[in-house]
């Protein structure tokens, strides 16, 4: 799908470096992914995989001056048809795109909303800024937006403050804020992680509905494989700062090629198998993400690893719509 349609967002071999007390680290060192218009790409990974840093870099929100893009490109196709490299764009130009063409929804809506402004004022402010509407029509638009995200009694609630709302309602407000300028790309960074399951189901359904109606591309960052199966068209799996596999949601879940993807899926409690003693046991991945050395980053925890896995750089192999970063994927039984 993505190869034939020109991408909306195309990240190529991205590398991000951070200065820390203990010297420079590279939490992202080899991310290649693309999002086509109207599709949802789920970016999956555990903590330390670099998925959130990747999403922040697209929005130009890396903490300055400690973090910077040190390699690769973040190509974004603007509404005008022009393609720009977000990594090289001056901050002022990026600000113009942010909120207007690229919108973002975070995990914790409370910290992303201004506590001293009503939700209506916040949406209206963004609309005024990006669409140049007047005060009254901006507020009217805010009301429409709350209606769009299915907040009941939008006319009344437009005057409420964030703290008067529940977590689920605040996340709806965040989405309304993101949608208020018709973005062509939505970056959703763990938007349902802090929510209860019944509320999560509502928010996922809302994002899907809006995507269909507006036709935007969605980069959905999550660690929850259930959520991935629910909403993604395609999936990119990250491990230790690198993309290890990309494919359609069906391919990733049914025939994973990278040993990490496979092992991760088998860690799910729903995939527990009965052992010889009749107990149900989940497979686990031994150890944890350790120090990154030479060779494949997953090799120290991989059951299929052989000597060659520990040396040199392992490249991301792309074939049709699938990519995998593993020396042995052809030999390993799925």
């Amino acid at each position: 799908m993505s190869m034939n349609t020109p991408s909306l967002l195309s990240i190529q071999d991205l590398e991000i470096r951070f200065r820390t007390e203990d010297g420079e680290i590279a939490p992202v060192r080899g991310v290649t992914l693309s999002v086509a218009p109207g599709e949802t790409l789920a970016l999956v990974g555990e903590s330390g995989s670099g998925k959130s840093v990747t999403s922040l870099s697209v929005m130009g929100l890396l903490p300055r001056p400690a973090g910077r893009v040190s390699g690769g490109k973040i190509l974004f196709r603007q509404r005008s048809g022009r393609t720009v490299d977000l990594a090289a764009l001056p901050l002022s130009d990026l600000r113009g795109l942010r909120g207007a063409e690229i919108a973002m929804v975070f995990q914790e809506p409370m910290t992303s909303l201004n506590p001293v402004l009503t939700v209506g004022e916040q949406i209206a402010e963004s609309v005024r800024l990006h669409m140049g509407l007047g005060h009254a029509s901006a507020l009217k638009r805010a009301e429409e937006m709350l209606d769009l995200v299915e907040i009941p009694h939008a006319r009344r609630r437009v005057h409420e403050y964030p703290h008067q709302m529940s977590g689920g309602m605040r996340q709806r407000v965040m989405i309304a804020l993101a949608m208020s300028c018709n973005p062509s790309l939505l970056i959703a960074d763990e938007p349902t992680t802090a929510l209860d399951v019944t509320i999560q189901a509502q928010i996922l359904a809302l994002i899907q509905r809006l995507q269909r109606e507006i036709g935007m591309g969605v980069l959905f960052i999550t660690h929850n494989l259930g959520v991935v199966a629910e909403i993604a068209d395609r999936v990119t799996v990250m491990y230790a700062g690198q993309v290890v596999e990309t494919g359609s949601v069906g391919e990733i879940f049914r025939t994973p090629r990278h040993p990490y993807t496979n092992a991760l899926l088998n860690c799910l409690p729903a995939r527990a198998r009965r052992g010889e003693d009749g107990r149900r046991v989940v497979q686990s991945i031994p150890g944890s993400i350790g120090k990154i050395g030479d060779g494949c980053a997953f090799a120290p925890r991989c059951v299929h690893a052989t000597d060659p896995c520990g040396v040199g750089t392992v490249l991301l192999e792309t074939e049709m719509d699938r990519s995998v970063r593993c020396l042995r994927w052809r030999e390993i039984p799925a």
Partner: peptide, 13 residues
């Protein structure tokens, strides 16, 4: 019904 299943073939919520 609301808990997402890690299976793209499972019926959606």
């Amino acid at each position: 019904a609301a808990s997402p299943k890690a299976d793209p073939d499972a019926p959606k919520i």
